[in-house]
């Protein structure tokens, strides 16, 4: 296997890691007002993310950095081309991170409500836009060779808002909502758990419909049937049904595992449909960015492979261990004086 293919796979791994992990973060953020009745509930919900959200987001930074290192042409064309959607994602991620860290510092209701609104919007926006962006990549966007020889995006912003891509956005939005509900049902106790369980049923159905429509459309869109993509699409559907069923039967751990796996097969499937292209052009295959014409040299890829092979397992071990350390359910009753902030003058 060529180093380019190895790096294609590694980048799939990074995006899968990102969407499985930050996917439930986004879901929990969006669900915040819908699973909680009072401050204690809200703080319990946010505390389930507290120790892990930042580490989850690092998967995105590494995916970005690895794309820069392994496929600089892809990195350059994608991020300069999808300029505004990416910008909106960045703004949302900035606001969201700060909101998590700052919202409970003060007790004032207005202060907290504003941050809560920020958390909901800043979780929904990237959840939607990542789907739009990836659907566009799969569909193919107008790429052309520039005078200097580089392959550049020439489509503008509104070109990205086509029905197929918007459906993709709805899929990631609803899938992450359901995934977040599965996570909350697994990680909380009491009322929040019950609400999350009920919501996961409704959301899971909506996600299932949109995801099936999207996957059927995607499979038909390809010039010929791609057996691997088709298999992964079917696997995604089956895993989603399994997750839905597990949640229905209140097997919360299994439900979360199943939705994690469904996201894995979903994202992997899209990349498999692309391979060996990384960004197909809608203006002709001669303008496709592929793992060959977008990649770094073999030497760079080799260096990066060594680092990735050594470091990725270590990261997985300690990040996994964090989840083990914080494995216990969080309940609203455990939050002492939820209405007080550490920066209020009253004693804690």
């Amino acid at each position: 296997m060529s180093f380019q293919s190895v790096w294609f796979i590694l980048i799939v791994v990074l995006w899968v890691g990102y969407f499985v992990l930050e996917g439930f973060d986004f879901g929990v953020g969006m669900l915040l007002p819908f699973v909680s009745r009072n401050e204690a509930d809200r703080r319990a919900v946010l505390t389930t993310l507290g120790p892990v959200w930042d580490g989850n987001e690092v998967w995105l930074l590494v995916a970005g950095g690895a794309t820069f290192a392994a496929f600089p042409e892809w990195y350059a064309t994608l991020f300069s081309g999808f300029y505004l959607p990416l910008f909106l994602i960045l703004v949302a991620l900035i606001v969201r991170g700060v909101a998590f860290e700052y919202r409970s510092k003060y007790g004032k209701a207005q202060w907290r409500q504003r941050w809560d609104v920020a958390i909901v919007i800043a979780s929904a926006l990237p959840a939607l836009l990542w789907g739009v962006a990836f659907a566009n990549i799969v569909r193919g966007v107008p790429l052309e060779k520039s005078a200097s020889g580089s392959i550049e995006y020439v489509g503008g912003f509104f070109n990205l808002l086509n029905p197929y891509a918007l459906l993709g956005g709805v899929v990631t939005l609803t899938v992450f909502l359901t995934h977040g509900a599965h996570f909350l049902a697994l990680k909380t106790a009491g009322e929040i758990r019950v609400k999350a369980h009920d919501l996961a049923i409704k959301l899971g159905l909506v996600a299932a419909v949109s995801a099936v429509a999207f996957l059927v459309w995607s499979n038909l869109m390809l010039p010929s049937i791609n057996a691997k993509f088709l298999t992964l699409s079917v696997a995604t559907a089956l895993l989603w049904v399994a997750g839905f069923g597990a949640n229905y039967l209140r097997r919360e751990g299994w439900a979360f595992i199943a939705s994690s796996l469904a996201i894995t097969t979903f994202v992997t499937g899209l990349f498999v449909a692309l391979y060996p292209r990384v960004m197909p052009s809608s203006l002709g295959a001669q303008f496709d960015l592929t793992i060959t014409n977008a990649s770094s040299t073999d030497y760079t890829l080799k260096v990066m492979t060594v680092v990735a092979v050594v470091m990725t397992p270590v990261v997985l071990v300690y990040q996994g261990w964090t989840y083990w350390v914080f494995r216990k359910r969080v309940s609203a009753a455990q939050i002492m004086h939820p209405e007080r902030g550490v920066l209020d003058t009253l004693p804690l």
Binding site: D54, G55, E57, V58, L61, V62, G64, G65, A66, T67, F68, A69, A70, P72, E73, Y75, A76, S296, T297, T300, V303, M304, V307, A308, M311, T312, V315, Y318, Q319, T322
Partner: peptide, 23 residues
């Protein structure tokens, strides 16, 4: 510069950002 400049950035994420954020 991607062939050269990207590698330290990716290594930074893998080696440093995960360590910082997780711990």
């Amino acid at each position: 510069v991607g062939d050269i400049f990207g590698a330290p950035l990716a290594i930074e994420g893998l080696l440093a950002f995960f360590l910082e954020s997780t711990f």
